[in-house]
Design a protein around this nucleic acid. Structure first.
Lengths: 194, 194
DNA sequence: GACAAATTAGAGTAATTACTCTATAAATGA
DNA sequence: TCATTTATAGAGTAATTACTCTAATTTGTC
């Protein structure tokens, strides 16, 4: 489990960002935390923004692993698993979700990359829902725009459930994560075949 | 419409925070933008955090006006109006919503105040829903926990709809606001008496 | 008008910031 | 082996930061 210098820097940055927020953490802090000299840090990263961009790439890679996982067995079960793992990733990189819009406003490159993969992800989710409709798990939807609405709502929940808990001052526990999963199912409940 | 110095500072702060984000805006910037000397700014505010706290108080006051408004006429219409106005307030103070969790982590005083009024607001919303149930607008809910779920979901949408649009790179227009209102109604649709 | 209190201006400061530069040390490979 | 690339350390710098201090001005009150 030997980490190289670059990984060491990224890991320390995530730790500090999660704890103190990006604006309170300087490159000097990151260097100190990771036990790497300032000079060496700047050998690997041009600036703080580039570190954050690298963290985004780590997130993307983590996400890919979740979606690649084959959902053998119950299709609804597979969906729940994906949602659950998504919540865990959001927690791992929580600083990013807390400050998302602010970060993207500062760094346009970050914005473009994030929006690019976000678009992909929505498409994937759309396909998954269509799958559920085709296999008869979901029915009784009145119009195609209803699908869009449902999709948007479940997206909102999966992306902001942890933020809501945090801003409400609640602890993030496994039970809370489970509540989030169930919340998404609540939205679909009226349209689920028993 | 003559503004006093304190208001001038607060207004400039909101403008700059919305445009550049709190971390990029210094007290010096705010002083310059508002045409007030640094010394004078510090006469009114101990530091940047205190300015943000004052902005929160402005928000709270604005919110109170929305909820005080008597919902004469259709109760469902009144609800929609409140949601619509909420979105407009969220946009007015958008920096606050963008950076909420980060801001609260830095300033515990801000966190406590925000969570205090947030709790109140959830209670108000709960009463409103109960009102809708009692007056027969909403029905067919299976259990009391269903009410809670519905409430949480509509809360999530009303709080994060604009954030979602922003992080998705979409413009905030009146039509988008209306979509947000309709989205919340979608959640209740299966339970609405026609 | 005279006095006190409230308000304003802006020069000044210590700390921190991001980032550069140069000088070594370690790894590589011909 | 030894020369070249890669990696590391850390002192140094210019800019910016939040905030203080003092001195001047305005305001209100009698």
């Amino acid at each position: 489990m030997k980490k190289n210098t670059k990984e060491e820097i990224v890991d320390s940055a995530v730790l500090l960002f999660n704890t103190y927020g990006t604006s309170s953490v300087s490159t000097n802090h990151i260097a100190e935390e990771s036990g790497v000299s300032i000079g060496n840090l700047y050998y690997y990263f041009k600036n703080k923004e580039e570190i954050i961009r690298e963290i985004l790439e780590c997130m993307i890679s983590d996400w890919d692993h979740i979606w690649v996982a084959p959902s053998n067995g119950d299709i609804l079960d597979g969906l729940q698993t994906i949602i659950r793992q998504s919540f865990h990733l959001e927690w791992k990189y929580r600083f990013f979700y807390r400050e998302l819009i602010a970060l993207m406003r500062i760094d346009e490159q970050l914005q473009q990359r994030h929006q690019e993969i976000e678009k992909q992800r929505i498409e994937e989710q759309k396909k998954l829902i269509e799958n559920l409709i085709n296999s008869g798990v979901i029915r009784n939807l009145r119009s195609p725009s209803d699908i869009d609405s449902l999709l948007t709502i479940s997206w909102l929940i999966s992306n902001y459930w942890l933020s809501f808990l945090e801003s409400d001052g609640q602890e993030i526990t496994d039970e809370q994560v489970e509540r989030g999963v169930q919340l998404i199912l609540t939205v679909f409940k009226p349209y689920l075949a028993i």
